[in-house]
């Protein structure tokens, strides 16, 4: 079963047509510049649950698709 990604321009396509793009987020509580740089470079939220992400439709319109995916099930919540 391939995960289908809903591309607003091209329609639903298998995940293999897309390139995964992470949306990094540094917690607001990190105010020290060095700590922020370290966090941005290396640390990851890696949530077990819904996360916002971007997918580049390499095999189609070559545009970024924004969506939310549940990392526990791969269910795509919105587009």
């Amino acid at each position: 079963m391939s995960i289908l990604i809903p591309c607003p321009h091209c329609g639903s396509r298998p995940i293999q047509e897309f390139v995964y793009g992470e949306i990094p987020a540094v917690p607001d509580t990190l105010t020290d510049p060095d700590a922020r740089d370290l966090d941005r470079a290396f640390m990851r939220a890696n949530p077990e649950g819904v996360q916002a992400e971007a997918w580049f439709h390499l095999y189609g319109c070559r545009r970024w698709v924004r969506l939310e995916r549940d990392t526990r099930t791969d269910a795509i919540q919105s587009s």
């Binding site: 079963m1 391939s2 995960i3 298998p14 995940i15 293999q16 390139v19 995964y20 992470e22 990851r44 890696n46 077990e48 992400e53 995916r69 990392t71 526990r72 099930t73 791969d74």
Partner: peptide
């Protein structure tokens, strides 16, 4: 797989490639 995930889903595409 390129996307982070905790799911144990398997796919046909993987078998093929």
């Amino acid at each position: 797989d390129r996307q982070p995930s905790y799911s144990y889903n398997s796919g046909h595409h993987f078998l093929q490639s």
